[in-house]
């Protein structure tokens, strides 16, 4: 089991909990699972709960946190909202710690690799000394874990990339990467939820919608979720048939 997280202030209206090293998969899973557990039973005045890698930020409205505590009027003038939040987080951790942690959901994403959908696939294959099919096979074989959602609404940073696919970001970012583009950069793979500029190497694309503000939840993925890519070949074969 994991050791108790370290708590420290993040400003005067936030608390940062750190669960271990950022690269430690178990610490990342714990941060995500603990976040879900905190949100299931939130402290009055809690505004947001944000897991990212092995840390978790909680943001609160100090006045509501203090108003919600069972204290006399005079005590309330002296009390620290951070202290109340930390006590709540410590108590939540004790309740959470003893329970088995539910794993994040598994999502299968249909990926169209290469061609127009993955404009950088051939360049990626060349610089890695692999064939295009090998890159696809290696990428689709792994199960990835969402470490954090950030950079843009719904953008998942996923770990679990095979070291054979590790490449630095592009020197010159693309000014326009289409929604649904599947990219690799460093030790991560990610998916562009909306059209954005970006420096990841695009190897494929999905038609699935990753972010929709009119839905709840607005994003398909959240930290702790697991992702598999299912290679779709229909489009490529179809276009082969059509071309003379």
């Amino acid at each position: 089991m994991n050791a108790k997280p370290r708590f420290e202030p993040l400003g005067d209206q936030g608390l940062l909990a750190t669960f271990g090293e950022a690269h430690d998969g178990e610490a990342v899973a714990t941060a995500a699972a603990f976040s879900r557990s905190v949100m299931a039973k939130p402290l009055p005045g809690l505004r947001d709960c944000v897991p990212a890698y092995a840390s978790l930020a909680v943001y609160y409205d100090p006045a509501t946190v203090i108003a919600g505590s069972r204290m006399g009027k005079r005590e309330k003038q002296q009390v620290s909202a951070y202290t109340l939040c930390q006590e709540y987080m410590t108590a939540s951790w004790q309740g959470f710690h003893s329970k088995s942690q539910p794993r994040g959901k598994l999502i299968v994403i249909q990926a169209y690799y290469g061609g127009a959908a993955g404009a950088d696939l051939s360049a990626v294959a060349r610089s890695l000394g692999l064939s295009e099919d090998e890159v696809i096979q290696i990428h689709a074989k792994q199960e990835y874990t969402v470490q954090a959602i950030g950079f843009a609404p719904g953008f998942p940073y996923m770990s679990g990339l095979d070291p054979r696919l590790t490449l630095p970001r592009k020197d010159t970012p693309n000014t326009r990467v289409e929604a649904g583009s599947i990219g690799v950069a460093g030790q991560h793979t990610g998916i562009y939820p909306v059209e954005l500029p970006g420096g990841w190497h695009i190897i494929g694309r999905t038609m699935q919608v990753l972010f929709d503000p009119d839905q709840y939840p607005p994003a398909m993925l959240e930290p702790g979720d697991r992702v598999r890519f299912e290679p779709m070949s229909a489009d490529r074969e179809q276009s082969k048939e059509v071309s003379p």
Partner: peptide, 11 residues
């Protein structure tokens, strides 16, 4: 816009 930062949504 509080409550959606875990989905990457800015406040």
């Amino acid at each position: 816009r509080w409550g959606y930062q875990r989905y990457g949504v800015s406040v």
